[in-house]
Design a protein around this nucleic acid. Structure first.
Lengths: 218, 218
DNA sequence: GACCTTCTCACCTACGTGTTAAGC
DNA sequence: TCGCTTAACACGTAGGTGAGAAGG
């Protein structure tokens, strides 16, 4: 302390876990339009995918990494005349919407080694098999990352890990750029266009729109 | 002690981890013919897949589960006149052929909850990217499961976990029914027929052989 | 030549997309 | 009718098969 250049080790210990969102440019394209995410009975992946870079962990300590979907503001939304406007009162959250990253638990060194991707999380509007996140259609959500330090204590549910302060230490990292409204079908066609443009799995529809006049006879 | 019915808890603690091989009937079909597994430069999955049921773990303790490929007997093999016969001296193992189950590390309760499947392990004959298992073609191998109890010590390589007795406690579970000879192309056509018959990914070849005279004109 | 390895291929499994029409 | 949800669908991504020809 008092020195101009503090070593990164000491710095990490004092600051604690840090989370950096990847693909921020892409996320902001969607966020600027008000992002939408499809929910289906069988579960739908997110696009863009929440991908983060984690730092500031103790390499040989054990952590679980969770993704929570927090219902923000307390009303439904409806899409009228090309705009999202608040509607009636929100339904109360059906339970904790918390997804545990499948590589959990793991060492700090593991989580900080590479980008951590949540591409496998599936959003649903039905109470489904485990691992699937139940959300209310036409409600607004904000994804948040939780990093939970786990010991050799008994395994516990994600809820316990997050809600019980006596249980373990954790940090929370909100990702405001990734906010979205859950929908059963896209409302804003500009959002649809962006999804098609950047999601490789929607390439079938890209081709149809971006090849204007090709494949014609001479 | 001294009682006829000892509780399962006490029993588990004294016996320690136990491993039960799944699909034993299928494995024995192949074993009876001398099983073969393809190795390729880019890595080839195994079929059948090593799937095990684990019991006898402490639910809240942390373990890693490993699959090792041990080179048994010390000579090459060749397939002549429909038989596998020993050939020259074996090449020495290029290094440890140990695959770490991707859900490692995890709680005892996790490993014993469901069948543990090694379907993602890939066998290769080249020194490849990590996670790929390098084997010598025309040599015989026996897969063995290692269950390693890990604490909050620094992460270590699979080799260290297994080879250094001072590092951690582990148990070893040989799976003799899953022995095979590594090959770059199948030698025994009966083995090929079994692979096609039971591996869904080879269904293209099943159809060709099992639909004898259908799809003909009336 | 005989043996073994490599590469390309057609044909699958498995499943992630928005579209569209039907349902409520 | 209107708003929202559901299910079937065509068309992609991604990658696991043995066959067969070519290479060494």
């Amino acid at each position: 302390p008092g020195h101009a250049s503090v070593g990164p080790h000491e710095d990490e210990l004092s600051v604690g876990p840090r989370v950096h969102l990847e693909d921020r440019d892409l996320w902001e394209k969607f966020h600027g339009l008000t992002n939408e995410m499809i929910v289906t009975k069988s579960g739908r992946r997110m696009f863009p995918v929440v991908r983060i870079r984690i730092s500031g962990l103790v390499p040989n300590a054990m952590y679980s990494v969770l993704l929570e979907f927090v219902q923000i503001d307390s009303h439904r939304w409806k899409y009228v005349n090309g705009e999202w406007v608040p509607g009636g009162k929100a339904e109360s959250p059906p339970g904790q919407a918390i997804y545990c990253h499948p590589e959990s638990p793991n060492f700090g060194a593991h989580w900080t080694k590479d980008i951590v991707s949540f591409h496998k999380v599936k959003l649903t509007n039905k109470t489904n098999g485990n691992g699937q996140i139940m959300l209310h259609s036409l409600h607004k959500y904000e994804p948040r990352v939780h990093i939970v330090r786990v010991g050799t204590e008994p395994p516990a549910s994600p809820e316990t890990l997050i809600r019980n302060p006596a249980y373990n230490r954790y940090t929370t990292h909100p990702l405001p750029e990734t906010q979205f409204i859950a929908v059963t079908a896209y409302q804003n066609e500009e959002v649809t266009a962006l999804k098609i443009r950047y999601n490789p799995f929607a390439k079938a529809f890209l081709d149809a729109k971006e090849r204007p006049e090709s494949h014609r006879d001479l």
